[in-house]
């Protein structure tokens, strides 16, 4: 892009509204891990508003690398049935790296994907995009999945730049059976760190 050419102005964002539920979620959307893959993890949590109330109509998308840190360029997240036009679900073999999940009536969500591998100087993480009724413009954040190496987290350029009390909002809490808890707070004292890319 030459400095003389002003970039084309972008199309503005709008809220996703309350009625995307019959259009955007798809069977298998939350379950990106290939069947019986040994690096499968569950990440789950709640989306909460500024009053601490659950957000029952948020849509989350996750994008991230496989366990080796490689970013897939693989379709098939929304694999379709040519007979009925419906959804077949993922093929259970390929990893697309893309996850979409809607919150339930309690604001809770859960996904099964591959434990992300480290890339560059980053600690392992997934990129997260948050949509909701009432949110005029989506929010980006990251969920860092601890890999047991404190040096890795300390060297991550984003985590290192945050004050400790805010840094913790981006780090999932390990639980039993390869589960990781990650709550998203849209507003308030423990507000999640959200990101802006330039």
């Amino acid at each position: 892009m030459s400095p003389q050419t002003p970039p084309t102005p972008p199309t503005p964002s709008h809220t996703i509204g309350p009625f995307y539920g019959y259009a955007l979620p798809f069977p298998g959307g939350p379950d990106a891990a290939p069947h019986a893959h040994p690096d499968t993890i569950t990440v789950h949590g709640r989306v909460l508003d500024g009053a601490g109330a659950p957000v029952p109509d948020a849509l989350l998308e996750f994008w991230g690398p496989d366990a080796e840190g490689q970013l897939p360029q693989q379709g098939g997240s929304l694999r379709r049935d040519p007979v009925t036009g419906g959804f077949l679900g993922r093929n259970g073999v390929d990893f697309t790296g893309f996850v979409r999940v809607a919150t339930d009536a309690d604001g809770h969500w859960a996904i099964r994907t591959l434990r992300p591998g480290a890339r560059g100087g980053h600690a392992p993480h997934l990129s997260v995009c948050v949509f909701a009724r009432g949110l005029t413009h989506h929010l980006f954040t990251r969920v860092y999945v601890p890999n047991g190496d404190p040096a890795s987290a300390a060297a991550d350029p984003l985590l290192a730049a945050l004050p400790p009390e805010r840094r913790t909002t981006l780090i999932a809490t390990p639980g039993p059976h390869a589960t990781h808890r990650f709550d998203l707070r849209l507003q308030g004292p423990d507000e999640t760190v959200f990101l802006e890319f330039s």
Partner: peptide, 9 residues
């Protein structure tokens, strides 16, 4: 109640 009050990083 659904907008962050902290500026984005």
């Amino acid at each position: 109640l659904r907008h962050p009050t902290q500026p984005p990083v």
